[in-house]
Design a protein around this nucleic acid. Structure first.
Lengths: 277, 277
DNA sequence: TCATTCAGTACCGTTTTATGAAACGTTGAC
DNA sequence: GTCAACGTTTCATAAAACGGTACTGAATGA
């Protein structure tokens, strides 16, 4: 029962270039700002004070005070004996442990991915369609010094990525257009497909051959090849992909990776099957 | 002065009528309720759906929907391939790991470890399962000149380490296989267990006897013995372990360290339970 | 095929929280 | 005693969450 087609909307992430990790403490909804504060404090190997946080974050003092109070009340932070230094609380540590313990699913996925990366010698990703963008769920980097940086959690448009195109290709023309019509096909490189007609042709080809290639359509010099991870039904929005600089792998030689990719996809499908209870 | 009756805007939980358990999802401030939702989802070893959460929490559907949307937008949760199951996102996992690395350094954990190292005269570690590998959270080195170098933060495969095997041993056969079957059991030494069947036998033995031994399975000449640090619930992914060259401690003499290890594990469990101070 | 069902999503008036400038307390250094 | 640096409280305003109701589209069934 895969239902990838989602109604077009959403204006949440708004990951504009300058705003990535720069200050998650500003411009977000209060709850997320609170969480970002926890992250900030939890990421330090020393205690923090109100004043220190004021200087570091630029937030008004009363605001931070209220936030800390709230977190302390929830036992997420703990005030030290001197009353002015905050550290992480028991609940937070317990949470971290539970979290790590219950990521069996993720662990299994990661193992498959690492195996694939070892086989291919290149950076490998697991991606999923989320909203109207492709999100990187997990990644294993190659050892090669020459590589592209794109952390897990980052997002990429559908029409300019191998994974995005592969997912789109399994939809009917009508469904594709419904997903695409609300956002223009933005151009990133000279190879980016920016016309709906050309994209349709490309997607039909992809549907036929089973794999998609991003031939420097998003980042110059970066080639990527993606195959679907089959889901319960006939459609899926999960992909596994390998990427490399065009210097090492070009559009034609990329197909040599297909056997390994398909093997990994089958393994991931197995895992997914178990995961939904 | 610790005055328990805090004047102020927020009355403490004081579970109002009709609450099943201590219900952190009701009666709290929105931000904390959001966090409680993350905890709820992160504490499960399977994915959740909107409908399932509605039934479990009793919160109105639109409210939960909004919360999930918010968390997904922040990359704290990720929607699975079918678009209706939610799981923990990359940001959350990365947060958990950072947290464990940082909370371990200062504070009582390190003291326990140092004490254990003094008692045993060998290098001691605290480790945790992260993804599909074992990560070293903290370590105290022996004074002996002959020793092995493996810094904190470094990773080791599950099937070839005492800690990894000890953690695996508490899982069901099915869960173990889900984690292991899709990536080969890589061989490191002639002692490495590379067959699933043999590993299963070994893990069952470990579950029974309570401790795991790495008998030169990862590095030639290195023996390691690990026990679990009990957590809140049944399972834990935290281990404490001692390692030494086979010249000083071999497979049979390693069990002499067990009393000290168990004492340290109990101490660490206490620390986890109580928070600090 | 068309009707039905139901999980998931959007809407929007109401209620609840968060916000932050300013003022107030408290502590400790000199 | 005065000062300075922080932590804490107040309060009018702005913003966000809330949740009943209604809509949508995919899955299911007749």
């Amino acid at each position: 029962m895969s239902s990838p087609a989602q109604s077009g909307r959403r204006e949440l992430p708004q990951n504009s270039p300058g705003n990535l990790l720069s200050d998650p403490l500003n411009g977000e909804t209060p709850a997320l700002r609170l969480f970002a504060l926890i992250e900030l404090i939890g990421g330090k190997d020393h205690f923090v004070t109100l004043q220190g946080l004021v200087e570091e974050t630029g937030l008004p003092k009363p605001t931070l005070h209220r936030m800390l109070q709230q977190l302390e009340g929830a036992d997420l932070l703990v005030r030290q004996a001197d009353g002015r230094h905050y550290g992480t609380g028991a609940r937070l540590r317990s949470f971290a442990e539970t979290l790590m313990l219950n990521t069996v699913q993720f662990g299994a996925r990661h193992a498959v991915l690492r195996n694939l990366a070892a086989e291919t010698g290149e950076t490998c990703n697991i991606t999923a369609l989320s909203g109207d963008q492709v999100v990187y769920l997990d990644r294993v980097e190659t050892d090669e010094p020459l590589r592209v940086q794109l952390g897990p959690g980052s997002r990429v448009p559908m029409h300019a990525s191998a994974s995005g195109k592969r997912v789109l290709a399994q939809l009917s023309t009508k469904q594709r257009h419904r997903l695409l019509e609300h956002a223009p096909l933005q151009r990133f490189t000279s190879h980016t497909i920016t016309s709906l007609e050309k994209l349709d042709v490309e997607l039909d080809t992809i549907a036929e051959q089973g794999y998609a290639i991003d031939d420097e359509e998003y980042l110059p010099g970066l080639v990527c090849i993606a195959v679907l991870v089959p889901g319960d039904g006939e459609r899926s929005n999960l992909c596994v992909a390998t990427q490399a600089p065009v210097l090492r792998i070009d559009k034609s030689s990329a197909t040599k990776l297909l056997p390994a990719l398909h093997r990994a996809a089958a393994a991931l499908a197995d895992i997914e099957q178990e995961g939904n209870r």
